[in-house]
Every structure is written in structure tokens, then in C-alpha cells.
């Protein structure tokens, strides 16, 4: 029994270095990205992460055209494009009085098309699919350093910025009246978001980069009643998804990135059904109402 468990859960990582690297990278992503996702959900900005993930593609494409599949060049290009899109999305949001979803949807379709077109001028379908879908198992040293560095920076900044971020999220009017510089903190937050999307892009590609950020955050809504609780639940779900997704992909020979995102999706379905906060099952289990 024990040896079977070791065979299933431990041996793949002990045996293959590329699996270990993938695991470390995904665990780093899982620690940092989900709390950002929680803030996005709370701010009703769930779509923004997707827009950013697609918005960085043209920048990455330019980096790729200049230097090929180099992490540094693609990251610099992606960073510039990401900041432009983040600031642009904010400007669109202000100009449209908060009803930004239509403009954002337009923005990310254009960015995706532009990115694919740019890449296709120079690259074949192998590189294109690498950029779109990522290659968790091909994470090299620079990519690993990027992911770990971004995760460390994110956790550090979040630990300082937690209170202003929660305030700006819950009661922006009060934040403005108290001169809490909500706008500045929001920009810091957007910066972290771009960095995390870039780091996730290394493993999961543009199309699924935000899978480990948003799915655990959306699922966490059914497990916590405080912002801290939500973040902890989201990180837990993301860590589990990374580990389970890698093992599933190894044993069943599935594509790795999609396997991880699918496990996170499964965790979301389970949360919707069985989560203690607003889950379907707890609602169906009718218990007599209390006297007062």
C-alpha cells in the first residue's frame, strides 16, 4: 500500500529532474498568484487578469522576434506590454464610468490576434504552441528564477500592502477621504499582477496563464469568510492543483498545463457543490431554522 503511494506520488519527482523543476515553479506560482486573484474577484475585476495575460502576448512576440525563445527578452517585452495594457484598461474603465467589460473584451481579442500574427511572421507552429500553451515541463533556469523571484516579491509586497488593498477594495470612498492613496496602491497591485501573469506565462502559456490565479480564487469564495481566509483557501487549492495536475499528466500522459488547470477547475466545481459558504449541498441539506 505504502509502496504504491510512493510509486504514484513520490517516484516521478525523485526520478525526473524536469518534473521537480516543474513542481517547484508551479508551487511558487501557487503561493503568490491566488491572493491576487482573490483581490480581483472582490473588486469584480475577474476579467482583468485574462486581459493582461493576452495583452502581454504582443510584447512577448516582439521579444521573441528580437531574440528568439529567450526568457529575458520575452519577459521585458511582456512587462512593457503588460503595463501598457494595465494602465490602458484603467483609463478605459474611467472613461466608460466603470462599465469596462466590453472594451476589455475588445482589447484582449486584438492583443491576441496581434501577438499570434507577429509570432507567425518568424516562427513555426511548435514555437507558437509553446507560447500559447506554455511548456511546464520545459521550464529552464532563467524561467524558474523568474517564477521564484516574482513569487517572493509578491508575498513581500502583499504583506506590506494588505491593509490598504483591503480598504481600497471594500470602501474606496473612505480610502479617498482618509487620503489613503488608494490609487497608488492599486497601481502597485496592477504591477504585481503583470509580473505574476508573466511568470505564469512561462509555464502555462498565454491562454492559461491565469488558471492558477483565478480558478482557486473563485473556488475559495465557498470556503472563507474573511479576505485572509479566502487567500489561504485559494493558495491551498492552487498548491493541490499543481501537485495533482503534474502527477495526473505524468501517469495518464496528459498535456501538463491543461491538466493543472483542469484540476483547479475540478476544485472549483467541488467548491460550488460542497463548499460550506453558499455551496449547493449545504443549501439542500435543510436544517430547521433557529429560534432567534
Amino acid at each position: 500500500m505504502l509502496s504504491l503511494a510512493v510509486d504514484l506520488l513520490w517516484s516521478p519527482f525523485a526520478e525526473f529532474g524536469f518534473l521537480r523543476r516543474a513542481l517547484v515553479g508551479c508551487l511558487a506560482l501557487s503561493l503568490a498568484a491566488p491572493p491576487l486573484g482573490v483581490f480581483l474577484v472582490l473588486r469584480r475585476m475577474s476579467l482583468t487578469a485574462d486581459v493582461l495575460a493576452h495583452g502581454i502576448l504582443p510584447g512577448i512576440a516582439v521579444g521573441f522576434l528580437v531574440a528568439g525563445l529567450s526568457v529575458t527578452a520575452m519577459s521585458i517585452g511582456g512587462l512593457v506590454a503588460g503595463m501598457v495594457v494595465a494602465v490602458g484598461a484603467g483609463a478605459v474603465s474611467r472613461a466608460t464610468g466603470g462599465r469596462e467589460d466590453a472594451a476589455l473584451a475588445a482589447l484582449y481579442l486584438v492583443a491576441l490576434a496581434l501577438g499570434v500574427t507577429l509570432i507567425s511572421t518568424r516562427a513555426g507552429s511548435v514555437e507558437l504552441s509553446h507560447l500559447l500553451f506554455g511548456s511546464v515541463l520545459g521550464v529552464d533556469d532563467p524561467a524558474l528564477f523568474l517564477m521564484a523571484g516574482v513569487a517572493s516579491l509578491t508575498l513581500l509586497v502583499l504583506s506590506f500592502a494588505w491593509r490598504p488593498l483591503v480598504l481600497e477594495c471594500f470602501d474606496p470612498g473612505f480610502a479617498a477621504a482618509a487620503r489613503a492613496r488608494g490609487g497608488l496602491w492599486h497601481m502597485v497591485f496592477l504591477g504585481l499582477l503583470v509580473l505574476n501573469v508573466l511568470a505564469a506565462f512561462q509555464a502555462l502559456g498565454t491562454l492559461m496563464a491565469v488558471g492558477l490565479m483565478m480558478l482557486p480564487a473563485v473556488a475559495a469564495r465557498h470556503w472563507g469568510r474573511s479576505v485572509g481566509g479566502l487567500a489561504a483557501a485559494a493558495v491551498g487549492i492552487a498548491l493541490f492543483s499543481s501537485l495533482a495536475g503534474l502527477l495526473l499528466s505524468y501517469h495518464l500522459d496528459l498535456p501538463t498545463g491543461p491538466a493543472i488547470v483542469l484540476v483547479a477547475g475540478g476544485a472549483w466545481v467541488v467548491s460550488v457543490l460542497a463548499g460550506p459558504v453558499d455551496g449547493v449541498l449545504p443549501r439542500l441539506l435543510r436544517r430547521p431554522h433557529l429560534a432567534g
Binding site: L167, F170, D171, A180, W185, S226, G229, L230
Partner: peptide, 24 residues
């Protein structure tokens, strides 16, 4: 205000200290 925000009553009241405590 978003009344569905996951925050406790005590934490909301504590925000009143902001002018003296600030962010950190």
C-alpha cells in the same frame, strides 16, 4: 459600499483608526 465584502464588523470599525495608524 459593497455589503457582501468578506470583512468583520470589528475590522470595519478598526478602519476608523486609519488617520492615526495608516497603512502599516
Amino acid at each position: 459600499l459593497d455589503r457582501q465584502f468578506p470583512i468583520s464588523c470589528l475590522d470595519v470599525v478598526m478602519l476608523g483608526h486609519w488617520a492615526r495608524c495608516g497603512a502599516f
